[in-house]
Design a protein around this nucleic acid. Structure first.
Lengths: 205, 205
DNA sequence: ACGTTTCCATGACAGTGGTCATAGTAGCCG
DNA sequence: CGGCTACTATGACCACTGTCATGGAAACGT
């Protein structure tokens, strides 16, 4: 995975995100995070004097940044430059995980949102994380030929569908919802591409 | 709300769903449920000998049934019989709540899914709840003229988008994502209606 | 009236969580 | 070496949770 050896602090943030997305925020204990990160428990209060709220916040922020960076890599690896292909890549990241690891993980940002209505700070971190994720998606859409005024809404729709499908897939224990949204939403996304700007080449149809 | 005075047992299930969808499963204590339901604490072990897992399971099941029944009512109240109108009604249920109560609630089924990967029983209850919700939506879509083979996938897409938008809206503290998915997904849904069968289901215009 | 079943009340227990206090170690600068 | 800072270690505290045990109160059939 990313950041295997990056100092105890980042390892703890990473582990927190990992555990949160699997078990939820409340079910993830600080001690568990230290153990999972192979980090000393005493470092928790040293690096995160703000306590669990700070750790969760940083994990959520990290997850948002990570998701944003992934968008750039998806764009670079796209076989054909179409919005549907980008969305398919985003979805495939999850279906792949569901097939390798049997444990069906979720999105840490969603987990923090669902589980932390109490903490205003965490809620704001989640909102920022979603923005860090949505902005690159919207930018990618414009690069793919989607008009600027539709890029942001469609990015919101993509992330919403993906998040919801992740939840349904976890509940069902099957990737069906993920594949379904990828298949059903693709045409809508491609139809938003401006016809007079066929975006670097190979056109569909 | 529904079921204000229906015996302590149902009140507790209802209150559990209410609290779960606001605070998450782990953050919702059994004692809180009893207090919120104006029910005696001693009744918990009497009505729910299976403990918290049973209570959460019934709350999730209740929520699924509730969502399914709402679909029928939405269909009855539709001004114009189009899939986009049904989806808009489903979304409006949430935007309305966000504007009346400042506390932004979530979906209890999603909360249970995110927060209870540990419990297999809860996961299955969530899967069943999603099915109890998706089936009426798919059926409604066919009534509205969507071909049978596309009804289920589109229902999955609708619920996924809605769930994801709920999460994003909670994070942002704004209904923007909800309105966005309703607006962006509407045309796709209406485009799935068979042209030669213009809304056969109800003759009302 | 009596007993049995259903339901309610309350206190205790064991476990766990986050957090704090205190003390120990490593490294660097004088 | 002394002092200072960064980091690690560990144990204790307190609040809280789900669960259980025990006992009381209605309800109701007979």
């Amino acid at each position: 995975m990313a950041g295997v050896q990056r100092g105890p602090r980042e390892r703890m943030v990473f582990s927190a995100a990992q555990l949160i997305r699997r078990d939820g925020v409340s079910a993830t204990g600080m001690r568990d995070v230290a153990v999972h990160a192979n980090a000393p428990r005493g470092s928790l209060q040293h690096y995160f004097p703000g306590g669990k709220e700070q750790l969760v916040g940083e994990a959520v922020t990290w997850a948002g940044r990570y998701a944003g960076k992934r968008v750039a890599r998806f764009m670079a690896d796209l076989a054909e430059p179409a919005p549907s292909a980008l969305f398919a890549a985003m979805v495939r990241q999850w279906t792949d995980e569901y097939e390798t690891a049997d444990g069906l993980g979720g999105c840490p940002v969603a987990a923090a949102t669902v589980d932390c209505a109490s903490s205003e700070a965490t809620r704001e971190a989640a909102a920022a994380a979603f923005m860090c994720w949505r902005a690159p998606v919207a930018e990618a859409l414009t690069e793919l030929g989607v008009p600027a005024e539709r890029a942001e809404p469609l990015a919101t729709l993509m992330i919403s569908s993906l998040e919801g499908a992740i939840i349904m897939a976890r509940a069902e224990g099957d990737v069906r919802p993920l594949r379904t949204v990828a298949r059903e939403l693709g045409p809508l996304l491609d139809a938003a591409v401006l016809p007079d700007r066929p975006t670097t080449g190979r056109g569909e149809a």
